[in-house]
């Protein structure tokens, strides 16, 4: 492969999990739930997929289990935030710790070894390519759902003013719960891509802060599916750049920090100009 083509391919590979997580973030935040548990949902999706693939010997079963794990975590966040009015930052932080710690514990319990799982049946290169295409397709699908379906209108309304949604005879809590569950499933799929798409195992710290980079992509993309996807692609390109530049002898520690520094710079640059959904992170109390 020529160098530019190699770079583009690598950028897509690096961007795919970010896209899934960023879309999850967009959906949740447009509904008014600040999902900082994206990191945990990525980790849970990745780990549960590996565990299920190991148990069944079937990578597709692993994929389904990973998506389900993400959905469950998303659902728990939504449930805690809507029914119990738990602070969303606290709930999200707790879920992150639970998922990442749970995966580390699971490695010992299930595989009898800390740090990383043994190799399991993976989706292989075709599967990974298909997931990358799925990520891009999800971006367009979420755009259509949010802006061209009744449910999308309700989700956006919930993120702005849940009281108005309630006075229109709808239940904002149910809408938010469904949004976080679907969002969790999307982030779980991003985790599946990490463990069964790009690789064939789970290792501790695999999510590597991607859930938080995705939150930055949400803001950078102004809370729109296509914008967030564009931002995720840009962050993916920076990660790819890091690999290319490493070969040219730039210190690797510096390069690894590149996407994070870029996220920070992007947030600083956009702060005050982008407007979050008005009720983003604000609990709805009847």
């Amino acid at each position: 492969m020529s160098e530019p083509a190699e770079f583009l391919a690598l950028a897509l590979v690096k961007a795919a999990p970010l896209i899934f997580a960023a879309l999850a973030g967009v959906l949740c935040e447009r509904a008014g739930i600040l999902n900082i548990a994206l990191e945990g949902q990525l980790a849970a999706g990745a780990f549960v997929a590996v565990a299920a693939a190991a148990a069944t010997g079937n990578a597709l079963a692993g994929l389904a289990a990973g998506v389900l794990a993400g959905a469950v975590l998303g659902g728990v966040l939504g449930f805690a935030a809507t029914r119990f009015g738990v602070d969303q930052i606290v709930a999200g932080t707790g879920l992150n710790l639970l998922a990442i710690g749970g995966a580390a514990f699971g490695l010992v319990v299930i595989f009898g070894q800390p740090g990383a799982s043994p190799s399991v049946a993976s989706l292989g290169a075709p599967g990974a390519h298909l997931l990358i295409a799925t990520a891009l397709a999800c971006a367009f699908a979420l755009h259509l759902v949010l802006y061209h379906t009744p449910w999308g209108l309700r989700v956006r309304a919930c993120g702005e003013n849940p009281r108005a949604v309630a006075s229109a005879g709808l239940d904002p809590k149910s809408i938010r719960l469904l949004a976080t569950t679907v969002g969790g499933a999307l982030a779980g799929l991003g985790g599946v891509y990490l463990s069964l798409g790009e690789l064939n195992l789970y290792s501790d710290g695999m999510s590597a802060g991607r859930g938080f980079i995705a939150l930055a992509a949400v803001i950078f993309g102004r809370w729109t599916p296509l914008g967030a996807t564009g931002a995720a692609l840009a962050f993916g390109a920076l990660s790819a750049l890091q690999f290319i530049l490493q070969r040219s002898g730039v210190p690797s520690e510096l390069m690894q920090a590149l996407p994070y520094l870029a996220a920070l710079a992007a947030l600083a640059g956009i702060a005050g100009r982008a407007r979050a959904p008005r009720a983003d992170g604000v609990p709805y109390v009847e």
Partner: peptide, 11 residues
């Protein structure tokens, strides 16, 4: 109880 960032018809 309106949503400022939505259009009139959406509200």
């Amino acid at each position: 109880e309106l949503i400022g960032r939505l259009h009139v018809w959406e509200n």
